[in-house]
């Protein structure tokens, strides 16, 4: 088991390397630079700036330098937010994004799997159709439509909750963004759980349980465990994506998370900030893929640690 984890961990390193390399050169190939302002800078100032940030070096040297710094854990200074290092910016944004994403993932797993299992046990009844309808709506109505509607209803009309802002992560401020973030995921998980569970409920081993008097609760338990396998492999990458920030939700609710920093960084050609974000997100994706592999092996004994 430990060997399995270690091997998976090592095999993630080349992937990370590819991600970093690809993003680095893709970004540099693009026209424009971090200091292209509307009014061009004087050539002298431009040259000084370029030199200060090492942008005057040949591209491959910049790349090697970036890799070297990265190995030492240095993500470099931000080009645009001049007083901050990328690490500082990310350390500010990450807790915000993780709080939102964590809440959303939890809701998605609990409510999604619950609703899906509930519907599967009552296939083709009114309750089932209601869950399917809700899930389809959740998948199809984009969160940038849901968000303003909720803002109007709960923020302005009822005035129960604030329309936006972080406010140091006060619960009142977090509720709406988490719900908006979670809704589509709840829907996807519910659909998935329902489909997988209906499939399992038809399996021979479920019939065996029923033939032995182990109906109801036992059937639900065995069915749900099998149905959770696809959900786990879906939630891994999704969790990574949610924890590292939702661009839309952070923009609409004015929250200082990673997603917003990323978009601003990209728009301002803030190379180091963009790279830093990509590295963090990629690490999250890889870590969660690893977690999925481990969970999968724990849930399904047929997976061998080879």
């Amino acid at each position: 088991m430990l060997g399995f984890v270690l091997r998976r961990f090592l095999s993630a390193i080349p992937t990370l390397f590819v991600v970093i390399t690809l993003s680095f050169f893709l970004m540099r190939l693009a026209p424009g630079g971090p200091f292209d302002l509307e009014r061009p800078l004087e050539a002298k100032i431009m040259e000084n700036l370029q030199r200060a940030y090492g942008l005057d070096l040949p591209l491959h040297e910049q790349y090697l330098r970036y890799l070297g710094n990265l190995l030492r854990g240095d993500l470099g200074p931000s080009f645009f937010m001049r007083d901050f290092s990328v690490a500082q910016i990310l350390m500010q944004g990450l807790p915000v994004s993780m709080a939102l994403g964590g809440g959303a993932i939890l809701l998605a797993l609990v409510l999604g799997a619950g609703l899906g299992a509930f519907a599967a046990m009552r296939q083709n009844t009114g309750a089932d159709h209601a869950v399917v309808g809700f899930a389809t709506a959740g998948v199809t109505i984009p969160n940038f439509v849901v968000a303003p509607v909720l803002q109007i209803v709960f923020g302005l009309t009822l005035a129960w909750l604030p329309v936006g802002g972080w406010n140091n992560g006060a619960l009142r401020n977090v509720i709406l963004p988490v719900i908006v973030l979670a809704l589509p995921q709840i829907a996807v998980v519910a659909r998935m759980t329902r489909a997988a569970m209906i499939e399992t409920l038809r399996a021979d081993h479920i019939r065996t349980l029923r033939s032995l008097g182990l109906g109801g609760r036992h059937v639900a338990e065995h069915g749900l465990r099998a149905a959770l396998l696809p959900v786990v492999s879906y939630l891994g990458p999704t969790a990574a994506a949610l924890l590292t920030g939702s661009v839309v939700v952070e923009t609409i609710f004015g929250l200082p998370g990673i997603g917003r920093y990323f978009v601003e960084g990209a728009l301002n050609r803030d190379y180091t900030l963009v790279m830093g974000t990509v590295v963090v997100v990629a690490v999250f994706v890889l870590v969660f893929n690893l977690i999925v592999d481990i969970l999968y092996a724990l849930l399904d004994p047929r997976v061998r640690y080879e």
Binding site: D204, H205, I206, T208, L209, S211, A226, P301
Partner: peptide
């Protein structure tokens, strides 16, 4: 009680 034709799938693999 009942036993079935398919021993490969009659038991829960998990």
């Amino acid at each position: 009680a009942m036993i079935f034709q398919e021993p490969m799938t009659s038991l829960d693999p998990l």
